[in-house]
C-alpha cells in the first residue's frame, strides 16, 4: 500500500474501532506488515457480508439491505473506502 508521507508523519500508530468491528484494529503506518494485516482484517470482515458465492445465490449480489451498485463498488474500493476511514480516524486521534 502506497501511503504518502504526510499521513505517515501525522500518525504512526493508532487503534481503530469502526461500526460493526468485532475488535479494535491496531495499525502502525510506518510498518508495511501492519498495514497489510489491518487491511486483511477489514477485507475479511467485509467479505463475510458477501454471499454471492454461496450455492444458490447470485455472484455479484449482496444480501439486503445492500444495493447492487454497492457490490460493484465493494469489488474494487474495499481498501480505499476503509483505508480513507482509517486514515481519517487516525488523524482525529
Amino acid at each position: 500500500m502506497k501511503l504518502s508521507s504526510p499521513y505517515a508523519f501525522a500518525v504512526t500508530l493508532c487503534t481503530l474501532a469502526g461500526q460493526g468491528a468485532k475488535a479494535a484494529i491496531t495499525l502502525d503506518l510506518t510498518d508495511d506488515q501492519s498495514i497489510k494485516d489491518a487491511a486483511s482484517t477489514i477485507a475479511f470482515d467485509m467479505m463475510s457480508e458477501y454471499t454471492g458465492n454461496h450455492t444458490g445465490d447470485v455472484p455479484g449480489n449482496l444480501p439486503d439491505p445492500y444495493y447492487w451498485w454497492e457490490c460493484g463498488a465493494m469489488l474494487v474500493y474495499c481498501l480505499t473506502v476503509n483505508g480513507m476511514l482509517l486514515i481519517i480516524t487516525g488523524l482525529a486521534l
Binding site: K36, P59, G60, L75, V76
Partner: peptide
Amino acid sequence: MINYWYYTGDTTYNEVTMQALVHQI
C-alpha cells in the same frame, strides 16, 4: 477487493471477485 489484492499482494479474494464481475456483465 481489486485494490486490496493490488496493494497487499494477497490473492485470497481474486477468484470470488472475478466470478462476481463476470456474472454481472
